[in-house]
Structures are given as structure tokens and as C-alpha cells.
């Protein structure tokens, strides 16, 4: 991993997340989505990012958090993950912050496991706690095999 200290930050249902700047491609405001029926729930749809098809994944749903209010449009944090580009849908974008000097600690044990699973750890900032997101794991959503009419 190497020691990274710059994080692109965002909020998801009041939680303060950060992704290493080197794996963030860009941040976009709300983009029109094309729904993908029968996709995993967290997959909100596909967006057209300058001709490239990008899967948009709702972090609220991914983390088992309550859905966003209907009128609140999510923002896109476009990250590179396992050779692909994935858009993480988040509530709001924060600043890029420098955390040099701070030690990455493991996520506290009482954090829900679905959240623990997708973070590298936490950074205790003076005024808040930053959850350091593992973009690869966050973007790993597998299709649950359908129970009806599966092939033999």
C-alpha cells in the first residue's frame, strides 16, 4: 500500500469516508443513470463517462445504511478499482485532506462488519474520525445467483 496521506473525503449517511487520492479519477455531480434490472441491489445503474460505461454503486446500500431521501441527488466519486472504473455514489463531497503524521488504526470492533469489510482502517482526526475506504473491496459486489429458473 505504501504510506499515503492524502485522502479525498466524502459523507455517506453522516459517516466521514476517505479514499486515497491516487485511486480517485474524478468527482462528478449527479449523472443520469441507466438502471440495470436484476443487478445486485447496490448497483444503482450505469453512467456514460465520456464514452466509457461506468457502474455506479450506491455506498449507502453497499454499507447497509438507510436510503437517501428522494430529492437528494448523490454525487459520483469515480475511482479506479481492479483495472476498471467504478462510480461510488455518496451524499456529499468533502475536501482533500492531508493526514501525514496520523497513524491508521484498525476499525473499532463495534463498527458493523459490513463497514469493517470495506475499510482499511480509521484515522482519528482532531475533530472527526475518517474511515479509510478500500475502494476495491467496496466495489466488489457479486451477483447472487437467481433461485428461479437457473440453468442446470
Amino acid at each position: 500500500m505504501g504510506e499515503q496521506s492524502q485522502y479525498c473525503t466524502f459523507w455517506v449517511d453522516g459517516l466521514f469516508f476517505g479514499v486515497g487520492v491516487e485511486c480517485v479519477q474524478e468527482v462528478l455531480r449527479y449523472q443520469q443513470l441507466t438502471a440495470v434490472p436484476s443487478a445486485p441491489e447496490a448497483i444503482q445503474g450505469l453512467i456514460n463517462l465520456r464514452g466509457q460505461i461506468v457502474t455506479a454503486l450506491d455506498l449507502r446500500c453497499r454499507l447497509g445504511l438507510p436510503p437517501r431521501a428522494d430529492d437528494a441527488l448523490p454525487m459520483n466519486v469515480i475511482v479506479r478499482s481492479r483495472g476498471e472504473v467504478v462510480s461510488l455514489l455518496v451524499d456529499d463531497i468533502g475536501d482533500v485532506i492531508d493526514t501525514s503524521g496520523l497513524e491508521l488504526e484498525p476499525a473499532p470492533a463495534n463498527v458493523p462488519s459490513v463497514v469493517q469489510d470495506v475499510v482499511h482502517g480509521v484515522l482519528a482526526l482532531p475533530d472527526s474520525i475518517l474511515l479509510v475506504l478500500d475502494a476495491d473491496r467496496a466495489a466488489d459486489v457479486s451477483v447472487v445467483p437467481e433461485t428461479t429458473g437457473g440453468t442446470p
Binding site: 443520469q32 441507466t34 440495470v36 434490472p37 436484476s38 443487478a39 445486485p40 448497483i43 445503474g45 450505469l46 453512467i47 456514460n48 464514452g51 460505461i53 461506468v54 457502474t55 454503486l57 481492479r82 476498471e84 467504478v86 466495489a139 466488489d140 459486489v141 457479486s142 451477483v143 445467483p145 440453468t151
Partner: peptide, 25 residues
């Protein structure tokens, strides 16, 4: 191509971009 999260879905072969810029499966 579509992302790895969707590759296992048997229904779709990929996606394309329509004349109005929206994505179609």
C-alpha cells in the same frame, strides 16, 4: 464492456451509448 459486478448476469452482453448519450444495455 460492463463492470465486473454485472458480468455474471446472464441477461446482458454489454452496454452501449445511445444517440442521446444515455447508456443502454
Amino acid at each position: 464492456p460492463i463492470g465486473r459486478q454485472l458480468k455474471a448476469l446472464p441477461t446482458y452482453a454489454g452496454a452501449t451509448i445511445m444517440g442521446d448519450g444515455r447508456v443502454a444495455l
